[in-house]
């Protein structure tokens, strides 16, 4: 048996040999595309912001029922429920967007019919996957900044400004974890075509055990065990320490050390699952179909 596919010939005119590596230039192309597509959905962006504001309003009223003494201390300081919950909301919002983008990027291209056109270009599937999530990742600090800034402005909440940089470091440290989980979900979605329901359950379970909306201490014991290895719990605790407790860089190292093994495990498993799913699709010739 012989199998060979040879495409011989000169590279097309206009190909870049410039300083920017081609891979990064391709990621930039995805970002440009997604920014333009996002800007074409102005109403949707406004609706998202309004929905978030309504959620904050509801939580602010709930917060009036909860005394700060019932909440854990951060850096030896008692915080209000609003301060407590908005940090959790911010991290969960970031996680949900990232997981959704990573898990559904290829599926979305399948659904709108552009995946095969993308695969006709000399672009690796990994680049397509990373590229489709790139704009969301880059927008994370901006989204969090706008969200927390608006809360400070309209709800009078105060944060320790010296906790901003440590918070960014912790957020950067959680991205590989979420990426790995997203890859596992992406593998399931590429294989089974439909997986949004499972993804909803997954993200809800992560949020529930993350301590975003209530202290982990009130959860049943077995959920507390899950919460201890939930990367969101670690990140939320880190951001609360830095932004609310004013611990600065003191606890950042501890949180990164907690997140590192989780990143290794989730990225490893996610990469393996995604590779296997792609291999199966290529073998069956069904990657472009939905």
């Amino acid at each position: 048996m012989s199998v060979s596919v040879d495409r011989v010939g000169p590279r097309p005119a206009g190909l870049s040999t410039a300083a920017l590596p081609v891979g990064i230039a391709k990621l930039a192309a995805f970002v440009r595309r997604d920014v333009r597509i996002t800007l074409s959905y102005r109403t949707s962006a406004v609706a998202t912001v309004l929905g978030l504001l309504l959620q904050v309003l509801v939580l602010s009223w709930i917060g009036k029922l909860i005394r700060p003494s019932e909440l854990p201390e951060f850096g030896g300081v008692h915080v209000s429920y609003m301060e407590f919950v908005t940090i959790g909301m911010a991290v969960n919002m970031m996680a949900a967007i990232l997981l959704y983008q990573v898990a559904t990027s290829l599926r979305n291209e399948q659904m709108i019919g552009t995946l095969e056109s993308l695969l006709c270009t000399p672009t690796a599937v990994w680049t397509l996957q990373l590229g489709s999530a790139a704009s969301s990742i880059l927008a994370i600090p901006l989204r969090l900044g706008v969200f927390l800034g608006a809360l400070a402005l309209f709800f009078g909440m105060s944060y320790h400004l010296d906790g901003v940089l440590p918070s960014i470091v912790i957020i950067a440290a959680i991205v590989p974890c979420l990426w790995g989980i997203g890859l596992m979900l992406a593998a399931a979605i590429v294989t089974f075509r439909r997986g949004h329901g499972a993804m909803g359950v997954g993200t809800a379970a992560l949020a529930l055990s993350s301590g975003a909306f209530f202290p982990v201490g009130v959860l049943p014991g077995w959920i507390q065990s899950v919460a201890n290895v939930n990367p969101l719990t670690i990140a939320i605790r880190g951001l609360r320490d830095a932004l609310l407790g004013g611990t600065g860089w003191a606890s950042v190292g501890t949180h990164i050390v907690e997140l590192a093994p989780l990143s290794i495990v989730t990225v490893g498993l996610g990469t393996l699952a995604f590779r296997l799913a792609l291999k199966r699709e290529r073998r069956n010739g069904t990657l472009g179909t939905y």
Binding site: M1, V3, V8, E116, S117, C120
Partner: peptide, 20 residues
């Protein structure tokens, strides 16, 4: 021929780029 699926057997040779 467009590179979207692999053959089980056989040869495909092209000179230059293939576009679909």
């Amino acid at each position: 021929l467009a590179g979207l699926a692999d053959p089980t057997e056989g040869d495909v040779e092209t000179v230059g780029t293939v576009s679909l």
